[in-house]
């Protein structure tokens, strides 16, 4: 059994890959591929409502059954994530403790020579 967090990730990936908004049933069918047991519809609903609460998917209530679509494209989230992770966001990224910051080309060349890497 995958954790709920991993299910959220695969569900969102399916929604990104889909041509348009999906109903919970359609999403369950897509998630069932490669998984013999399949998922209960209630589990899919739980995953979708968690994603909705976090602001990653939006529900369209005007149609029945309601459909779900990602709020933003995957690329936008990847850009935001990388912006933080690479330390380009200034003060904001102080929330993360990176293994090592980037050094200047001169300094790293000196270090690489010191360690015999080049």
């Amino acid at each position: 059994m995958e954790s709920l967090g991993e299910l959220e990730r695969t569900a969102l990936e399916q929604l990104w890959d889909a041509a348009g908004p999906l109903t919970p049933g359609e999403l369950r069918d897509r998630l069932a591929i490669g998984d013999q047991r399949g998922l209960a519809l209630t589990t899919v609903m739980t995953v979708l409502s968690r994603l909705e609460k976090k602001g990653f998917v939006a529900r369209d209530r005007t149609v029945r059954p309601a459909t779900y679509a990602p709020v933003s494209a995957r690329e936008e989230y990847v850009a935001e994530l990388m912006h933080d992770a690479l330390g380009a966001a200034g003060d904001r990224t102080e929330a993360l403790a990176r293994f090592v910051g980037r050094a200047s080309a001169d300094e790293t060349a000196a270090l690489r020579r010191l360690l015999g890497l080049d």
Binding site: F99, V100, A103, A105, T108, L111, L114, L115, L117
Partner: peptide, 9 residues
């Protein structure tokens, strides 16, 4: 080595 490699990107 790990520090130097990662720091140099």
């Amino acid at each position: 080595r790990a520090i130097a490699i990662v720091a140099s990107g």
